[in-house]
Design a protein around this nucleic acid. Sequence first.
DNA 1: CCAGCCTGCCAAATCGTTTGGGCACCTTGG
DNA 2: CCAAGGTGCCCAAACGATTTGGCAGGCTGG
Lengths: 343, 343
Amino acid sequence: MKRIGIKDVAAAAGVSATTVSHILNDVEGKRINVETRATVLRVARELGYRPNSLARGLRTSRTYTVGFVSDEIATTPHAGQIIRGAQDAGTEHGLLLLMLNTGGNPELERKAIALLLQHGVDGILYASMYHRVVQVPQQLRSVPTVLVDASADDPTVPSIVPDEEQGGLTATRELLEHGHRRIGFVTNIDDIPATRGRLAGYRAALAGGGIGFDPALVVADRSDAPGGYRAARTLLSSAHRPTALFCFNDRMAMGAYRAAAELGLTVPTDLSVIGFDNQELISENLHPALTTVALPHYDMGARAIARLQAVIDTSETTTGPAPQEVLRCPLVARDSVAPPPRS
Amino acid sequence: MKRIGIKDVAAAAGVSATTVSHILNDVEGKRINVETRATVLRVARELGYRPNSLARGLRTSRTYTVGFVSDEIATTPHAGQIIRGAQDAGTEHGLLLLMLNTGGNPELERKAIALLLQHGVDGILYASMYHRVVQVPQQLRSVPTVLVDASADDPTVPSIVPDEEQGGLTATRELLEHGHRRIGFVTNIDDIPATRGRLAGYRAALAGGGIGFDPALVVADRSDAPGGYRAARTLLSSAHRPTALFCFNDRMAMGAYRAAAELGLTVPTDLSVIGFDNQELISENLHPALTTVALPHYDMGARAIARLQAVIDTSETTTGPAPQEVLRCPLVARDSVAPPPRS
DNA sequence: CCAGCCTGCCAAATCGTTTGGGCACCTTGG
DNA sequence: CCAAGGTGCCCAAACGATTTGGCAGGCTGG
C-alpha cells in the first residue's frame, strides 16, 4: 500500500503532474480550465492524496517545521503552556514543532541547533523557562528566531516576555482596592527581571494609591515555600503588621499560608494573600484557594509563533528594529483576598 | 552563504559525490582507498558539511523523526518528564521529536496524525497524560507506534505503563515498616487503572503484613485537595482512627494535611501521610515535605523511544506478541512518615 | 487566408542524497 | 603477451515534489 503521489493523481485525472501541482497550489499566472481543475481536485480527494513534505521541502526549502529549543522543560508546568500556545498557533499556520531541550548545556545546545538546521526548520523558538536575559547563540543569526520568556542581550532579536511590572502593579492594586493600606511584599533574592519588575509594580501601585513606600514591608528570601514561610513570619511578627501580603510567587504564598496558620491568622479574614504565577497545582489546591496573577505562558507561545511567522514571511526585507513584545499578566481572583479586619 | 552539500565536499576532495557518500556512510562492500577516505573525512569536517536531512529522508524514507501525540500536555508537569525522557533517549539515536497535542479531540487527532505521516515520521509515540485505556486510531496501524502511560484496547500495540499495584504496595509497605497497623486509604472515585491498581497494592501489602482488610478504612472522593480533605476528615473522625494515611495522590494528601491540622494532629508525629505521583510542586513545598511514590514518567518516555526504535529496526519481521511494559514506581522518602504515636 | 494572440497544458530541470551497476586500470599467473 | 581477477572509483537513476519555459491548437482581426 504505497503512498499515493502527485503522479498517481495526474494519471488518474488524465493530466500531467505539472498541472496537478499548479492546481493544488493555486499557482498564480497559470491558466487552468475550470473543469480540469474540478476533476483534479476531485480525484486528489478521492485518492486521499497528501503531498510528501520532504520532497516539497527539498524543492522549496520551506518545511513548515519550527524548532523549539528550551533550556529546561522539566519541572515547571509553565513549559507545557508555552508549548501548547505555540502548538495551537502553529497548527493554524500548518506548522509543526520540533522539540529539543538542552538542559542549559551549551555544548548540547550547539548540537541541538545544528540538528534542527539540518532538518531544515523554517525558524526557531528559543524559550527560557523563566524570564531572564540570555545570550543568543551565534548559529541562530542565520535563521529566523524569536525568544520566548527571555530577553536578548542583542536587541535585534525579537522576544516575547511577560509584563512583570504590570503584574506586580495589578496584584498590589487588587489589595489596595480591597482597602488594604499596609501591604507586605514577600519577594525573592535572585536578581532577575521578575524580581525587579514586580517590586517596581508594587511601588508604582503604592504610589498610585498615595501610600509611602516602607522598606520594612519588603522581605526577601528564597523563592520556595520555606522561604515564603520565613519572610512571612518576619513580616507578620513585626509590631505594626501588614494586613495583606503580596508574594513573589505561589510557592512563597504557600509558605505564607503556613506562617499565618501558625500565628493563628485566618486567610483571608485576618490576612489577605496574593500570589504570582498561577501555578494551579498550588493555587487551586490551597485552602482558601489562592488569588494570584497569571503569567501569560500560553499567549507567549502563541504570540511567539505569530511573530516568527511574520519574520519568516518577510525574511528578505529584514527590517531593522525588533521590538520586544510585552504581554499582560492577568489577575486570577480566587478566595484569598478580602477587606482588612477592622482593628 | 549557501549550505554546503555533498557535491561541494566531493569537488574539494577531488572525488565524486558517490564516493563521498560511501565514505561518510561507511557503506559495506565498497572498497575505498584508505587515503581517499582520510582526505574526504578531513575535507568534510573542514567545510563543516552537514547532510541535508530532507534529501536523505526523501531517498531513504527514514527521517529520524518521531511524532509525539498526546491528548493533554496542559497542566501537569508529568507531561514534561515524559517528553524529557523521550527526548534524551531520542537524542542518543539521533531522533527528533515532532510534538502535537490534540486536546483529546478526535478530529484534531486524525489531522495531527495525518500531518505527522505527511512529514514522514519513522514512528509515533501516543501518550496519554494519565494512565488509561485508549482506543488506537486506525491510521496508526500503518506506522510503528508505542503507547505511553496508556494501555491499548488492542494487545498487539506495545505500551509502557507504570506499575500502579507495585506503587500502592510500596507506599503501604513503607507505612507498615514504620510500625503502622491501622492505615487509612484516601482513594479516588474514578474507575481508572490507577485507582484499581493502587487499591490492589494496598490490599496486597496489608495481606503481606498479616493485617486484615477493613473496608471502613478506605474512603473515596474526588482526586483533588478538597476531596482529600473530606476523605481524610471522615477517616480521622472515626472512633478508632488510623495512625497513617495513604493518599491516592499528592493533591489529596495536601487536603489530608489540612484535615490533620484542623483536628490538631501534627504530621508526622500524630499522623503519617504518604502520597502518590511525586508532584514536586506540592510534595516538596508542603510542610513537612511529603513522602510519596513517584510515577516513572521520565523512564516511560525513555523506554518508549527505545521500544519504538526496536520496532522500527525490525519492522519487516513484525513479531506477534507485543508485551506491555510495566515500570516500577519508586518511593520518594521525605518527612511525612514516622512511627505511630504510642497510645 | 494568415499573422498573432490567447488558452490550456506539458517536458524537463531542480532540490541533495543514496545506490545498483559498471568501468578503467593494475597486478598476477600461465 | 594475454586472460582473469582485484581494486578503487564514478555514472546515472531514483526519491516526490515545484517551477521555468515552452508548445500545440483554436480564435480573432485584417
